[in-house]
């Protein structure tokens, strides 16, 4: 558990990061909380000759709430998501999800940017951000662009971000109705056996809008428009939930691992999705 040798850089501005990336190219990689990257380096599954620590860059920090628009700096920690009173009222699903990530020690270090940029299908934030229809801001040598969370993930550890780009912030709109994040895991600190994020708005006892996304059930997070469509216009009764679950299950592709074989995961996924939908509906 000893990483290969590397040089450590701690620039205090985004320009500093850019020039280090320009200088070292492929050999450089940014580090946020380090709680995904450092284990990979220690296992020598990642070799990073030039490690660029983002901790000293103030512009990447902070949670900003401007009316209905919420912006999370890339370096906002998972702990800060839990601790932010206004966020807990404007988009409470973030707190609910963050509380199910890892353990307090990891959450003090792990960041939103690292979690969504990492591209690990086990990470909880990517599915959550797809559910929220968040936008990721990327800063690179060519300037700044935004990519929708729903378009960002290509395969495990493969995203729309180029190696030269840094993810600077995540933006999304405040949520209105009901919300739920449900996750089945083997223990605290474990990645999901199956997890789902659901947002539901209700009017007149019926679902007026819905959003359903899932974690660790494919090599990328899975946003299911079909599941949402199956719910809208219904009273979220058993038939509607069953239809939504069926739509969601049609889009997942779990793999066997130590958590269990595919049949088990698919079954549990269906249960978790149904519970999350009902949970969100009951809160709407």
């Amino acid at each position: 558990m000893i990483p290969a040798p590397f040089d450590y850089h701690r620039p205090d501005s985004l320009e500093g990061v850019m020039s280090l990336i320009r200088e070292h190219g492929d050999e450089a990689r940014v580090m946020a909380g380090g709680h995904s990257l450092i284990p990979m380096m220690k296992l020598r599954m990642a070799e990073v000759p030039h490690l660029i620590d983002l901790q000293a860059i103030d512009s990447l920090r902070g949670i900003r709430i401007d009316g209905d628009k919420i912006t999370l700096g890339a370096m906002v920690t998972q702990h800060e998501l839990i601790d932010h009173a206004e966020l807990a009222t404007k988009a409470p699903i973030l707190r609910e999800a963050a509380l199910q990530i890892a353990d307090p020690q990891v959450r003090y270090m792990g960041t939103v940017g690292g979690n969504v940029a990492n591209g690990d299908p086990g990470n909880d934030m990517p599915g959550l951000m797809q559910c929220l229809d968040a936008q990721f801001t990327l800063h690179g040598p060519e300037g700044t662009r935004t990519v929708a969370a729903r378009d960002f993930y290509e395969a495990a550890y493969m995203t729309a971000r180029t190696d030269e780009e840094v993810l600077t912030e995540v933006t999304f709109a405040a949520t209105g109705g009901g919300y739920a994040y449900e996750k089945q895991k083997r223990k605290i600190g474990d990645y999901a056996t199956a997890a789902a994020a659901v947002l539901i708005s209700k009017s007149g006892g019926q679902v007026s809008a819905a959003s359903v996304a899932m974690t660790n059930l494919s090599d990328v997070p899975v946003f299911s428009q079909g599941a949402a469509d199956a719910l809208v216009g219904t009273d979220c009764g058993d038939a509607a939930v069953d239809a939504a679950v069926a739509a969601a299950l049609a889009e997942i592709d779990p793999t066997e691992d130590n958590r269990g074989p595919v049949a088990f995961k698919r079954h549990v996924a269906g249960i978790i999705i149904a519970r999350t939908i009902r949970g969100a509906f009951n809160r709407a």
């Binding site: 353990d103 223990k187 605290i188 130590n258």
Partner: peptide, 23 residues
């Protein structure tokens, strides 16, 4: 746990279950 090739499948604390106060 070992797979058929003799690989240890549970060689880290991610997969080797060590309960926490929570469990």
């Amino acid at each position: 746990a070992y797979d058929d090739m003799g690989n240890v499948k549970t060689g880290t604390l991610m997969d080797f279950f060590l309960p926490t106060a929570w469990e």
